[in-house]
Design a protein around this nucleic acid. Structure first.
Lengths: 256, 256
DNA sequence: CTCAATTTGTTCTCACATTCACAAACTTCT
DNA sequence: AGAAGTTTGTGAATGTGAGAACAAATTGAG
């Protein structure tokens, strides 16, 4: 079926089937664009259509998709449903991913109620908090479990992905406990750098960092205008501003 | 004081004082590491110390810092307080940044209560929601204002940065209204691609995307082990796993 | 069947980012 | 003062990603 043995395709250069990180980070965006098109009853789309839906340029999109295989048809475009399934399969969304959320403060609550999980194969298997007073409390469909049961929960539910939404001080301990229990991927919302053994993935989501990056560019914009921030700058810094537009770094939430 | 006029430093090659995006994204991490060191009473630190605190390698850290200027001392290291101030100034954290949060659902609540804002010069000037029933409701120190007052709030407070925490459907409209009111930087939590005029920065934080990226790597890990995910893989995929570790993409929250 | 129009998949080139490796600059010890 | 030891700042090499451009493949019209 696939011409995977041939060296003719550039996948021959990637015998490990590895997809570039930058591409992996965009696949979920394409997936969402495809879902949107599908819901509008559109059965087929060109790379140009898809790209504008996803907010990227079409050459990049085509190259990204080419890492997965040749799922388009020249002269026609891509079958929306088919491509959607292929991307979902590549990312691993055709299987169920039970996750556990540790730390049910304000953010933990928001995450627990977030509707975007279930729709993409992620199932919140359990909520855990260290505060005994909170244990038993209901959040959405779930009740908060004791931190002591963390290891049991992870093992019984086959949890591979853990979400840390604790204060910074607790993050490393929670991380260690999650890893000891068998979790191999961690999404960290605590403002702390986590040390993990090789083979464990950590991704960090840090609100304050995103704001600081915006502040940096904002400051440069007003410096360019010098005297009056609200006035048109004397020398329009076109190149400067153009650079900053595409700066986009992932993450979705829905105020469910 | 500074030898900024000389061409001797490589900043002579960057007359626009532009700092690479990748570096800008790491400065907040360094800043946090410096704050942590400072709180532990450490007055001086080498690039090695700092790098391990920040979770990066020391060569990268030195190169990043070199874009700001020569704030270290050879044979000694960096003065923690001094460097901290310099980075804060470069990012623009020495000034006050009033922000407005639009959409006070679960996530909006969490953001409104997030303590990491104030500590870094960000001040939540106002909370806005379109639901009239919510207007007047207290969240933390603030009360929710009407969406109709958005433009007035932005102008009166000199808000340059807006945070969108609405459902996806409302995001583009809110974005347009923010931009029309004068906001030039937007942090978007809604799972939608925003179109903005040139000169406006958008950064996106998308939880579900982060989870999907983790799922992709997780799937690859278990594929490497083939038969028994819980067993040691027959051929240890060392290179594979090593790559994934440093994958980290910013954002901080504290379950205040 | 042939030709024109369309659109993908891929190659090539350039820009950006990371890492190495070392000279320059500073401290400390003798 | 001089030598030995540290540690920064940076040039050079390598790796990764983005975008332009085009050949190959497909459709549809005549």
């Amino acid at each position: 079926m696939t011409s995977r043995n041939r060296r003719s395709t550039h996948r021959g250069d990637r015998p490990d089937r590895g997809i570039p990180e930058a591409t992996v980070a965009r696949l979920p965006v394409y997936l969402r664009a495809l879902t949107a098109l599908s819901e509008r009853g559109i059965a087929s789309a060109s790379s140009e259509d898809l790209a504008s839906s996803a907010g990227v340029n079409s050459a990049k999109l085509r190259k990204d998709l080419s890492y997965l295989g040749s799922y388009g048809t020249r002269g026609v475009g891509y079958d929306v449903e088919y491509l959607r399934y292929q991307i979902a399969r590549e990312i691993g969304l055709t299987q169920d991913w039970p996750v556990v959320i540790v730390g049910i403060g304000n953010l933990g609550h928001a995450l627990a109620n977030y509707s975007g999980f279930a729709s993409r194969g992620f199932r919140v298997a359990s909520l855990v908090d260290i505060d005994p007073a909170r244990v038993g409390e209901c959040v959405g469909q779930l009740t908060i479990a004791s931190y002591d049961d963390l290891a049991t929960i992870v093992r019984d539910n086959g949890v591979a992905i853990g979400v840390i939404a604790t204060p910074a001080g607790a993050a490393q301990t929670v991380c260690d406990d999650l890893v000891a229990a068998g979790v191999t991927s961690i999404l960290n919302f605590a403002p702390a750098v986590l040390a993990v053994p090789a083979g464990v993935d950590v991704r960090k989501v840090d609100l304050s960092i995103e704001l600081q990056i915006l502040a940096y560019h904002e400051q440069r914009k007003s410096q360019a205008g010098q005297n009056h921030p609200l006035t048109e700058p004397l020398t329009p810094p076109l190149t400067d501003l153009a650079v900053t537009d595409a700066a986009t770094v992932a993450v979705e939430v829905e105020s469910a």
